[in-house]
Computed example of a mutant assay.
Amino acid sequence: MLTRRSTLLGAAGLALASMIAGGSADAAEKDVTIAYVEWSDAVVATNVIKTVLEDAGYNVKIVPLSGAAMWQAVATGEADAMVAAWLPATHQAYYEKLKDQVEDLGPNVSGAKIGWAVPTYVADVNSMEDLKDKASEFKGQVIGIDPGAGLMKASENAIKEYDLPLKLIEGSDATMVAALKDAYGKKEPIIVTTWTPHWMHSSFELKYLKDPKGVFGGEETVNTVVRKGLKEDDPKLYAILDNFALSLDQEQAVMLENEQPGANPAETAKKWVEANKATVDQWLK
């Protein structure tokens, strides 16, 4: 397995050391490094658990990485944990390659899903199969997120499986939402790659396209994954991470707050933790 790391990451692995320099899990007993991808749901979960751990006496560093580099960071011990592992489908390739080097603590959010969506005002498109004859209505494009993301790989497969004359446009969570906002304001047709939990489902009237071939898989969970040996090194930290869980509604509400002008994800996380003491106390048991 160790000999395949360079194949897994390529250039991303070279950037990893400099991004996490000084934040190694080996730095000190109370130091914690959490890796995450800059998706709106992962930003919420990561900042919430950061706040909780800091209140418990830890010095927490959060490091934004690509999906592949996030898994690699935990597998090598350069990060202690992530709370943004989408399983069983979206991050399946990463998990299969690194499962012997990490420990999966199970879901911190249930009821997640991925797929493509269109605004509800696009009345004549309800299924992936409808797109074959209507690609021109969407300028032949699907607006995607960061290249290499599990959702993007699934989207590439969807284009092949349904034989769609569409081009997948790479970008980011932010650029995808910006394109959606622009099209939505003009009532223009648009296809976006999307997932739940995401705040845009609370701000726009969207519908997932039916996926009769099951390319995007079924319901998923967002899991907490930690480095090997964490339980022995710090049972208290391990227990808090193991207990950490949010509902879809809780996470999407904080995501929506983060979209308000001037919002700071660290501050909205602190606000949520202060307002949900009973929930947080369950994680600290």
Score class of each variant (00 low, 15 high):
17 A>D: 15
17 A>C: 07
17 A>F: 14
18 S>N: 07
20 I>D: 07
21 A>K: 12
21 A>E: 12
22 G>I: 10
22 G>W: 04
23 G>T: 11
23 G>S: 15
24 S>F: 13
24 S>K: 10
25 A>H: 13
26 D>K: 14
26 D>R: 12
26 D>V: 15
30 K>M: 09
30 K>F: 12
30 K>H: 15
31 D>L: 10
32 V>C: 09
33 T>C: 14
34 I>V: 13
34 I>C: 01
35 A>L: 00
35 A>G: 07
36 Y>I: 03
36 Y>D: 02
37 V>H: 04
37 V>T: 11
37 V>K: 02
39 W>F: 06
39 W>H: 08
39 W>I: 06
40 S>G: 07
40 S>F: 03
40 S>H: 11
40 S>L: 00
41 D>C: 09
41 D>L: 07
42 A>E: 07
43 V>Y: 05
43 V>R: 06
44 V>S: 07
45 A>I: 01
45 A>H: 06
46 T>N: 12
46 T>P: 05
47 N>M: 00
47 N>F: 02
47 N>L: 01
48 V>L: 12
49 I>H: 00
49 I>T: 04
50 K>R: 12
50 K>G: 05
52 V>H: 08
53 L>I: 05
53 L>Q: 00
53 L>E: 00
54 E>D: 08
55 D>L: 13
56 A>G: 03
57 G>W: 09
57 G>I: 01
57 G>E: 05
58 Y>C: 07
58 Y>W: 03
58 Y>S: 02
58 Y>R: 08
59 N>S: 06
61 K>F: 07
61 K>C: 04
62 I>A: 00
65 L>D: 04
66 S>P: 06
66 S>L: 10
67 G>E: 12
67 G>S: 14
67 G>T: 12
68 A>Y: 05
68 A>W: 03
68 A>T: 15
69 A>K: 06
70 M>Q: 13
71 W>N: 09
72 Q>P: 06
73 A>K: 09
74 V>D: 11
75 A>L: 01
76 T>A: 03
76 T>E: 14
77 G>F: 10
77 G>D: 12
80 D>V: 11
80 D>T: 15
80 D>Y: 01
81 A>S: 05
81 A>Q: 11
81 A>W: 01
82 M>R: 04
82 M>Y: 02
83 V>G: 03
84 A>R: 01
84 A>Y: 03
84 A>K: 00
86 W>G: 10
86 W>Y: 15
87 L>F: 08
90 T>H: 06
90 T>Q: 04
90 T>C: 06
92 Q>S: 14
93 A>I: 12
94 Y>W: 12
96 E>H: 14
97 K>L: 13
97 K>A: 13
97 K>H: 06
97 K>C: 08
99 K>S: 11
99 K>V: 13
101 Q>E: 15
